[in-house]
Simulated scan of single mutants.
Amino acid sequence: MHLLGPRLTLRPLTLADRDAVFALNRDPAVMRHFAAPMTRAESDAWVARLIAHQQEHGFSFGAVDLPGAGCVGVVGLLEIPWQAPFTPAVEIGWRIATAHQRQGLAEEAARLALAHGFGRLRLPRIVAFTPPENEASWRLMERLGMQRQGSFGHPRLPADHRLHTHLWYELRREEWMAARQLD
């Protein structure tokens, strides 16, 4: 999976990406809508899980490579390993380095991931979720054509955690295909 966009490449993560991914995962600005920034060990374990997911399923979150800058983010598709009202499901997600945010890179990479998921992988639907306060993320979900389905309590966060409540969005393959025919 090497997906080429106008400005970036979305490719499988490798162990060589651990430093770049740790820079994302330790950055409080990047991780402000997550429970906490990751330690080096947590970030390296996450990269290992993503690589294993890629090997097992043929897709995962991948490295967002920008010419001259290298890996500036992680975007892709992942099977959700926990229970929620919408699981089993494949999610789309993104993390972009602070210096490269607000440049449309998450959207460009997410569109590549959606095309891969609905095209080659023929997934029937893709979901996304985020805390309500993460307006930039849910606005991106809407630009991608995803529809808000409701909210849920994230099972990996305590009920009293400030980020426990998440919005969830969904896009079905037939909706994605119909929207592409209108372009």
Rank of each mutant, 00 (worst) to 15 (best):
A97Q: 06
I51R: 15
L66P: 00
G104R: 01
H53T: 13
V72C: 01
L77C: 10
G62F: 05
G93L: 03
Q83W: 04
G62Q: 05
E91N: 12
F61H: 15
R49L: 12
F86L: 11
T98C: 01
W94M: 06
V75H: 07
G73Y: 10
G68D: 06
I80D: 01
Q83H: 14
I51K: 11
P85L: 07
V75R: 01
I80W: 07
I80F: 05
E107M: 10
F86A: 09
F61I: 01
W46C: 04
Q83L: 12
R49G: 05
A106V: 05
I80N: 04
T87K: 10
A99P: 00
V47W: 08
A45N: 05
A99L: 07
E56S: 11
V90I: 14
E108C: 07
A45S: 14
W82V: 15
R95Q: 14
Q54G: 08
D44E: 12
V64G: 06
Q83M: 09
V47M: 04
F61G: 03
G70P: 02
G62A: 02
P67V: 09
A109N: 05
A69L: 06
Q55V: 01
G58A: 05
Q103L: 15
W82F: 15
V75N: 07
G58N: 09
Q83F: 08
A84P: 11
G93P: 02
A48P: 01
A52M: 04
T98P: 00
E108L: 08
H100S: 02
T87G: 12
A52K: 14
V72M: 02
G76C: 13
A48R: 10
P81W: 09
A45M: 01
A48M: 01
G73I: 13
A97H: 14
V74M: 09
W82E: 00
G68V: 12
H100W: 15
A45H: 09
G58L: 10
A63K: 07
A84H: 11
D65C: 11
V90D: 12
A97G: 02
A84F: 05
E107P: 07
E56G: 04
E107L: 09
I92V: 15
G76Q: 10
G68L: 08
W94A: 14
R102D: 06
C71R: 04
R102Y: 04
A52R: 15
G70T: 00
A69E: 15
L77Q: 05
